[in-house]
Simulated scan of single mutants.
Amino acid sequence: MSSPNPVDYFAIQNTLARYCIALDTKDFTLFDQIFTPDVDAIYPFRSAMKGAQELAAAIEQRHHRLTHITSQHALTTQMIEIDAGGTKASAVTYFTGIHFGKGTWQGKEVTAWGKYVDSLVLVEGEGALPGARGRWLICRRETVFMGRLGEEGVMDGE
């Protein structure tokens, strides 16, 4: 592989953004476009998950009970580094996730913030951003929560 081009950075950003869209739309089938099949994942609610299917199932189960909320996950400060060979990358991305209550919790919200610490690999196949050398998928993710603020009941109650 040749060294990275600027479009590779945009392709990585698209992969990371797709995760937020998957969470907010609760479309966990998108995980196949975000993570490698054998991804290693560490989340505050469950460590040492292996594989995109296990990760999707765990997050879907966690969000399944959250039918009484809507959410908006946003990515902010970000640093992406692609290795000299152009096939591996690392990214640290700060995020904010706001969860808005419905029904009994209408008008209430809870906000979580933290960072995603990701390792990515370049893979061949369809779905690449035009101009990128391929698709970038996360092969390792650690989600680090740095704080929460708001009405915690939004996350628990009907």
Results as ranks from 00 to 15, higher is better:
residue 119 S to A: 11
residue 98 I to C: 13
residue 22 A to K: 07
residue 116 Y to N: 07
residue 157 G to H: 12
residue 51 G to T: 06
residue 98 I to W: 07
residue 66 L to G: 09
residue 86 G to D: 07
residue 101 G to E: 09
residue 41 A to L: 08
residue 79 M to S: 10
residue 7 V to E: 04
residue 156 D to R: 15
residue 115 K to A: 08
residue 89 A to R: 03
residue 30 L to P: 04
residue 86 G to W: 09
residue 79 M to A: 10
residue 125 G to V: 01
residue 4 P to A: 15
residue 57 A to W: 02
residue 96 T to K: 14
residue 104 T to G: 11
residue 110 V to Y: 14
residue 138 I to K: 00
residue 6 P to E: 05
residue 61 Q to E: 07
residue 88 K to S: 13
residue 119 S to I: 04
residue 66 L to Y: 04
residue 100 F to N: 04
residue 50 K to L: 14
residue 82 I to Y: 03
residue 60 E to V: 03
residue 57 A to N: 08
residue 65 R to M: 12
residue 98 I to V: 14
residue 17 A to G: 10
residue 59 I to M: 04
residue 32 D to C: 01
residue 5 N to A: 04
residue 28 F to D: 00
residue 35 F to S: 01
residue 129 L to N: 04
residue 97 G to R: 12
residue 148 R to C: 09
residue 33 Q to I: 02
residue 36 T to D: 06
residue 104 T to L: 13
residue 128 A to P: 05
residue 102 K to Q: 13
residue 82 I to T: 05
residue 81 E to P: 00
residue 45 F to C: 12
residue 134 G to Y: 04
residue 67 T to L: 08
residue 34 I to T: 04
residue 45 F to I: 14
residue 14 N to R: 15
residue 90 S to G: 09
residue 145 F to D: 01
residue 148 R to A: 13
residue 102 K to E: 13
residue 101 G to F: 09
residue 120 L to H: 06
residue 130 P to Q: 02
residue 77 T to M: 12
residue 99 H to G: 02
residue 128 A to I: 00
residue 62 R to V: 10
residue 105 W to Q: 14
residue 45 F to S: 15
residue 90 S to I: 10
residue 28 F to N: 02
residue 58 A to D: 01
residue 50 K to C: 10
residue 24 D to C: 03
residue 75 L to C: 05
residue 137 L to Q: 03
residue 51 G to M: 06
residue 68 H to P: 11
residue 64 H to A: 15
residue 118 D to W: 00
residue 1 M to P: 13
residue 70 T to C: 04
residue 20 C to H: 08
residue 155 M to G: 05
residue 106 Q to W: 02
residue 66 L to F: 06
residue 116 Y to L: 07
residue 118 D to P: 00
residue 91 A to S: 15
residue 86 G to K: 08
residue 30 L to Q: 12
residue 155 M to F: 15
residue 76 T to N: 12
residue 35 F to H: 03
residue 125 G to S: 04
residue 101 G to K: 06
residue 127 G to P: 04
residue 124 E to C: 00
residue 38 D to L: 06
residue 100 F to C: 01
residue 75 L to Y: 09
residue 64 H to N: 14
residue 128 A to E: 00
residue 128 A to Q: 08
residue 122 L to K: 06
residue 95 F to W: 06
residue 1 M to L: 13
residue 36 T to F: 12
residue 125 G to A: 06
residue 140 R to C: 03
residue 108 K to H: 11
residue 95 F to L: 07
residue 123 V to H: 13
residue 53 Q to H: 11
residue 121 V to L: 01
residue 73 H to L: 08
residue 97 G to C: 06
residue 12 I to D: 04
residue 64 H to V: 12
residue 114 G to Y: 00
residue 142 E to D: 10
residue 129 L to I: 02
residue 7 V to N: 01
residue 56 A to D: 01
residue 103 G to N: 09
residue 110 V to Q: 09
residue 135 R to C: 05
